[in-house]
Design a protein around this nucleic acid. Structure first.
Length: 910
RNA sequence: GCGGGUGUGUUGAAAUGGUAGACAAGCCAGACUUAGGAUCUGGUGCCGCAAGGCGUGAGAGUUCGAGUCUCUCCACCCGCACCA
C-alpha cells in the first residue's frame, strides 16, 4: 500500500470535524493550557504559505500539550472589521459584509486543509453583533470609570461624583460642583473618564477620510493605504491609556516575551524622569509664567534661549507686535507641512523669534524666546529651555540663529558640536560646580523644589489612544447626545447594530453614519463615528473562553479556569499597537474585577515572516528566445519574473511556460545540459512578482503533513526566511519512509515481536529530543531527530509495535493525518490526539545525581553517580553499567575521557 | 544617533563550555531500471598523493578545552527617532 496522502488527509479531516475531536470544555480534573494565534484579518487575496507559519507552530505545541495531559484551548476567529473591506466597498459598491463573508469562507477552507486542531465551536468574527456587543459593553464601562491615582486603578465614575459632592476633589469644592449645570458637570467628568471625548491634535488622514492612532501612522503615512497624514485639532473619543503607562511598563518584567519586544514597548511608553520648571517671561511689559520640562535640570546655567512649539497655546500671548507678522508667517509655514515632511527635514533648522524674553529662575538672566517646529506640542509642556552646549538640537538651532553657547562641563569641546553625554564635571554652574553630572542632576532637582521654582515630574511618551474613526465598517459607539451631552446607552440596548447606508464614501470629516436614516435613540442623535480596528481585537482572547455567554463577556467560572493565554503566537507588527491596547484593556477589566489576571499573554513568540523567492527568465532583447541562467551574460537580455509555480528546483517547465501567457506560446529556449535554469531573488511575496505560493497547491501536490513539516523544517520559527520549494522533497521523502515502516506494497508490517535494545535506543533518543525541542520551539531540529530515528529503524528492519506505536504518537503533533491513519491501522478506535503521551516519558527522566557529565554521541548527555575520588577505570565501568537505567546507551565505545588535574571532567561516547 | 538581534559549507541550518558542520537541499559517482521531478548505495568544509595541517566575520582575553563566555572592532537585519 502506498502513502496516499490525498485520501488520508481528506478522510481524517472529515472524521475530526464530524466527531468534533478538537472540541474542548472546562475540565477541572486536568491542568489547562491556552494557546492562541493572533487572529487574521481576512483579506481578499486569501492565505499564502507565509500566513500559516505561526498557526502550524502553535498547532504543534497544542497537540503536544494535549498528549502531555493538558486540557488545551486552541481557538481561531477573524478580525473582520477594518479599512480594506470598506475601501473595497467604496470602489465597488459591494457591502463590506458580503466581501468579508466571502473572504472568511475562503480562509476557512484553506485553514481546514492544513489540519489544524482548532475548536471551531468557539469561533467568532469581530463584526458579529453578538461579539461587538461586548466591545461596546467594555467601552461603556470605560466611559463609566475613572482612574483613581491614589488607588492606582480604575474605579466607577460614581465614586468621583461622590467625592465632588461630599469632600471635593482636585480643586473642585462641593459648593462649586453643585453650582455647575448638567453640561458643565459632564465636561468636568470628561477630564477623568477612561473613555472620553476630548479636543486634541490628531492624525488626520485625508486619503482615508478619518483620524488614525499613532501606531496606524508610519513615517507620516497611513499604514493602510499609505496616504499622507497631517496634524489637526478635532474633538475625538479617546481611551486614557496614558493613565496605565506606569503599570504597563512595570509588569513587562513579569512576562515571558523576548527582550526586543519588551524594549519596543518600553520605548513606546517612553518613561522619562525629569523636572518641570517655571520661567517668568516678559512680552511688551506683560508677565506670564511658562512651564518647561527638562531631564537636565543641571544644565540650567547654560540656558541661552527658550523655544515654544508652533502649536503652543502660549504663542499668541508671547508674540510682540513687532514680530507678529513674522510669527504668523512661520505658523502658516509649519501648519502646511505634513508630518512626513517634518520628519524628512529634521536637519533643516527653522524658527522665528517671538519678541518676548524669559527670565532664568536661577541666574536671573534675560533670554530670548523663539518658536521652532523641533519642539513638539504633544510632549512635556510644549516649551523648552535650550542648552545648546549640551543638546545637539539646541546646538544646531543656536548655530543657525547666532545664539550664544555656554559650556558647562569641564573639558567638553563645544566648538564643533554639543556634548550630550551625561558625564563629566560641572563648571560655570554656580553651586553645582565641581559635581559629576549625575549628582548635579539630583542636586539641581532638590534646589528647584526647595526654592519653589518647580518640581520633579515623570513624563511618558505614551499618549491616549484616539478611539473614533469617521468610517462605516466598525463598531458603532453606544453613545447618544442628549441636549448636547454625551450619554451612554443603557446596557439593555446592546448590541447597537450598525445601520444600513446607501453609499460608503466618506469625505471631509463627515462620517458615513451621518447619512444613516433614523440614527437616533429616543429622538436624540447617536454618535456617528465608529470604533477603530483595535477595538474588536483588544479582548477577543477573553471571549474564546466563553464564546456563547449572552450575559457576560466571559463568565467567572470560565475565566477562573482558563485565566489567560499561556502561549501567544503572532507577528512583530503588533508589538506596540494591539499588544499595548490589549494589555491596557485587560488591566482595565482586571481593575473592575471582570477578569482574574492582570496580564493577558504570559508567553509570546513572534514567528518570522516568510518572504517570497522569485524566479526569472532571460529574454534576448528583440527576440522571443529565452536563455538559461548560465548563458545569459553572452547576450543582451531582459530579466522577466516568471511564475514560481511553473518552476521546480529552479528548472523551468518549458511547456507550462509556453502555456502561461499567450506571448510566450512560441517561445524558443537555449538550454544548459538540456534544462532551463532560472535566476532567483528574495522579495516580498506578492502577486506582481509571481512568487506567491498558495498552501492549497502544496497540499494538493505534497499533502498537508508535508507542508506542516516543511514550514517547520525551514528554520527556527522566530526567524524570517524565504520560501524555497527546494528541499520540500526531503520532508516528503521522510513521510514516505515513515509510511514504509508500517506498510510495504501489499501488507501491514507491524508485529508483536519484542523490541531490541538498538530499537529502544533509537526510540528513546527521539522521545527525549521531542520533549526538549518542542518546549524550546526547535521544531526544525526535532524533525531532524525524526529523520535519524526513521533511518535507523528502517536499517534495523523494525516491525515491533512496541517501537512503532509510540513513534506514531510522537509524530502526531507535526503530521496529524498520517499519524491518525496509522494509529487506526494499529487497531485503535479514537483519535491519536487523545493518546496519552506521558507513558512514554520515563526513559529520559533518570534521576542520577550530578557528578560526572557524560556525552553520548556528542548530543545526548547525562550524568553518573560516583564519588569524586573514583578512578578512570571505575568511571568507565560505571558508564558500561548504565544500560540498566538508560537503555539506549548499549555498547558504545568510549572515545575520549577528559581528565583535568586527576579529575575526570567528561566522557565522550560513540 | 539610541535600543535589540544576527554573522558557521554551494544553500536552509545543527551543536547544556567538550569529536564543529547533525539533518536536509544541491552536486558527483554507482546500482536497479529501460527516461521517472521514482527508489537504493557511496562521496561531498578547505589545503595535501599521503601522514597531517587549517577552519565558525576580524582581533584580543578567560579556560585543560571557546562557534558558545568577556572586551574592542567590522558587516548586515529589525525597531525607535527633533521625546528636551
Amino acid at each position: 500500500m502506498d502513502y496516499d496522502f490525498r485520501r488520508i488527509e481528506k478522510k481524517w479531516q472529515e472524521y475530526w470535524a464530524a466527531e468534533k475531536i478538537y472540541k474542548v470544555e472546562e475540565d477541572p480534573s486536568k491542568p489547562k493550557f491556552y494557546v492562541l494565534d493572533m487572529f487574521p484579518y481576512p483579506s481578499g487575496a486569501g492565505l499564502h504559505v507565509g500566513h500559516p507559519l505561526g498557526y502550524i507552530a502553535s498547532d504543534i505545541y497544542s497537540r503536544y500539550k494535549r498528549l502531555k495531559g493538558f486540557n488545551v484551548l486552541h481557538p481561531m476567529g477573524y478580525d473582520a472589521f477594518g479599512l480594506p473591506a470598506e475601501q473595497y466597498a467604496i470602489q465597488t459598491g459591494q457591502h463590506p459584509e458580503v466581501t468579508t463573508d466571502k473572504n472568511i469562507s475562503r480562509y476557512r477552507s484553506q485553514l481546514d486543509r492544513i489540519g489544524f486542531s482548532f475548536d471551531w465551536d468557539r469561533s467568532f468574527r469581530t463584526c458579529d453583533p453578538d461579539y461587538y456587543k461586548w466591545t461596546q459593553w467594555a467601552f461603556l464601562k470605560m466611559f463609566g470609570s475613572w482612574y483613581n491615582p491614589s488607588l492606582g486603578k480604575a474605579r466607577p465614575i460614581a465614586e468621583l461624583v461622590e467625592a465632588f459632592e461630599t469632600t471635593g476633589y482636585d480643586g473642585i469644592t462641593p459648593e462649586k460642583w453643585k453650582s455647575f449645570s448638567e453640561k458643565e458637570k459632564s465636561d468636568v467628568l470628561m477630564n477623568y473618564r477612561i473613555a472620553y471625548l476630548g479636543e486634541t491634535s490628531v492624525n488626520w488622514c485625508e486619503g482615508l477620510g478619518t483620524v488614525l492612532a499613532n501606531d496606524e501612522v508610519k513615517d507620516g503615512l497611513s499604514v493602510r493605504g499609505g496616504y499622507p497624514v497631517v496634524q489637526k485639532k478635532m474633538a475625538q473619543w479617546q481611551l486614557r491609556v496614558s493613565a496605565y503607562a506606569e503599570r504597563l511598563l512595570e509588569s513587562l518584567d513579569s512576562l515571558d516575551w523576548t527582550d526586543s519586544l519588551k524594549d519596543m514597548q518600553r520605548n513606546w511608553i517612553g518613561k522619562s524622569e525629569g523636572t518641570e520648571m517655571v520661567f517668568d517671561t516678559v512680552c511688551e511689559g506683560r508677565h506670564l509664567p511658562v512651564t518647561i520640562f527638562t531631564t537636565r535640570a543641571d544644565t540650567v546655567f547654560g540656558v541661552t534661549f527658550m523655544v515654544l512649539a508652533p502649536e503652543s497655546e502660549l504663542v499668541p500671548q508671547l508674540t510682540s507686535s513687532g514680530q507678529k507678522e513674522a510669527v504668523e508667517e512661520y505658523l502658516r509655514y509649519a501648519s502646511r507641512k505634513t508630518e512626513r515632511e517634518r520628519q524628512a527635514e529634521t536637519k533643516n533648522v527653522t524658527g522665528v523669534f517671538t519678541g518676548a524674553y524669559g527670565i532664568n529662575p536661577l541666574t536671573g538672566e534675560k533670554i530670548p524666546i523663539w518658536i521652532s517646529e523641533y519642539v513638539l506640542s504633544g510632549y512635556g509642556t510644549g516649551a523648552i529651555m535650550a542648552v545648546p552646549a549640551h543638546d545637539s538640537r539646541d546646538y544646531a538651532f543656536a548655530r543657525k540663529f547666532g545664539l550664544p553657547v555656554i559650556p558647562l562641563i569641564e573639558g567638553a569641546d563645544v566648538s564643533e558640536q554639543s556634548f550630550d553625554a551625561k558625564e563629566g564635571i560641572m563648571m560655570n554652574s554656580g553651586f553645582l560646580d565641581g559635581m559629576p553630572v549625575k549628582q548635579a542632576i539630583e542636586a539641581a532637582k532638590d534646589y528647584v523644589e526647595a526654592h519653589g521654582i518647580g518640581h520633579r515630574k515623570t513624563n511618558y511618551r505614551l499618549r491616549d489612544a484616539i478611539f473614533s474613526r469617521q468610517r462605516y465598517w466598525g463598531e458603532p459607539f453606544p453613545i447618544y447626545y442628549k441636549d448636547g451631552i454625551p450619554t451612554p446607552l443603557p446596557q439593555s440596548e446592546l448590541p447597537l447594530r450598525l445601520p444600513e447606508i446607501e453609499s460608503f464614501k466618506s469625505d471631509h470629516g463627515e462620517a458615513p453614519l451621518e447619512r444613516a436614516k433614523n440614527w437616533t435613540y429616543k429622538g436624540y442623535p447617536l454618535e456617528t463615528s465608529t470604533m477603530p480596528g483595535f477595538a474588536g481585537s483588544s479582548a477577543y482572547y477573553l471571549r474564546y473562553m466563553d464564546p456563547h455567554n449572552s450575559e457576560e463577556l466571559v463568565g467567572a467560572e470560565a475565566d477562573r479556569y482558563w485565566r489567560n493565554v499561556d502561549l501567544y503566537v503572532g507577528g512583530t507588527e503588533h508589538a506596540v499597537g494591539h499588544l499595548i491596547y490589549s494589555r491596557f484593556w485587560n488591566k482595565f477589566l482586571f481593575d473592575l474585577g471582570y477578569v482574574c489576571e492582570d496580564e493577558p499573554f504570559r508567553k509570546l513568540v513572534n514567528q518570522g515572516m516568510i518572504q517570497g523567492r522569485s524566479n526569472f527568465v532571460y529574454r534576448k532583447v528583440g527576440t522571443n528566445t529565452f536563455v538559461s541562467l548560465g548563458l545569459k551574460d553572452k547576450y543582451e537580455t531582459t530579466e522577466i519574473h516568471v511564475d514560481v509555480n511553473i518552476v521546480h528546483n529552479d528548472r523551468l517547465d518549458l511547456e507550462a511556460f509556453r502555456a502561461w501567457r499567450p506571448e510566450f506560446a512560441d517561445a524558443q529556449f537555449e538550454l544548459e545540459n538540456g534544462e532551463y535554469i532560472c535566476g532567483w531573488a528574495v522579495e516580498k511575496m506578492s502577486k506582481s512578482m509571481y512568487n506567491v505560493v498558495n498552501p492549497d497547491e502544496i497540499c494538493e501536490s505534497y499533502g498537508a503533513d508535508t507542508l506542516r513539516l516543511y514550514e517547520m523544517f525551514l528554520g527556527p520559527v522566530e526567524q524570517s526566511k524565504p520560501w524555497d520549494t527546494k528541499g520540500i522533497d526531503g520532508v516528503h521523502r521522510f513521510l514516505r519512509k515513515f509510511w514504509r515502516l508500517f506498510y510495504d506494497r501489499e501488507k501491514f508490517l507491524v508485529t508483536d515481536t519484542k523490541a531490541s535494545a538498538e530499537e529502544l535506543k533509537a526510540l528513546h533518543i527521539l522521545i527525549g529530543k521531542e520533549q526538549e525541542d518542542i518546549e524550546n520551539f526547535s521544531y526544525n531540529t526535532n524533525i531532524s531527530a525524526f529523520m535519524i530515528a526513521v533511518n535507523t529503524l528502517t536499517e534495523l528492519g523494525t516491525t515491533s509495535r512496541e517501537i512503532l506505536e509510540p513513534l506514531v504518537v510522537l509524530l502526531s503533533p507535526f503530521a496529524p493525518h498520517i499519524s491518525e491513519e496509522l494509529w487506526h491501522a494499529l487497531g485503535h478506535d479514537g483519535s491519536v490526539t487523545k493518546a496519552a503521551f506521558p507513558e512514554y516519558n520515563q526513559a529520559l527522566t533518570v534521576e542520577n545525581t550530578v557528578k560526572y557529565p557524560v556525552s553520548f554521541n556528542g548530543k545526548m548527555r547525562f550524568t553518573v553517580d560516583l564519588p569524586k575520588s573514583a578512578s578512570v577505570q571505575e568511571v568507565e565501568a560505571a558508564v558500561r553499567a548504565l544500560p540498566d537505567t538508560l537503555r539506549y546507551v548499549g555498547d558504545k565505545t568510549i572515545v575520549k575521557i577528559i581528565v583535568v588535574a586527576g579529575r575526570i571532567v567528561n566522557i565522550v561516547l560513540k
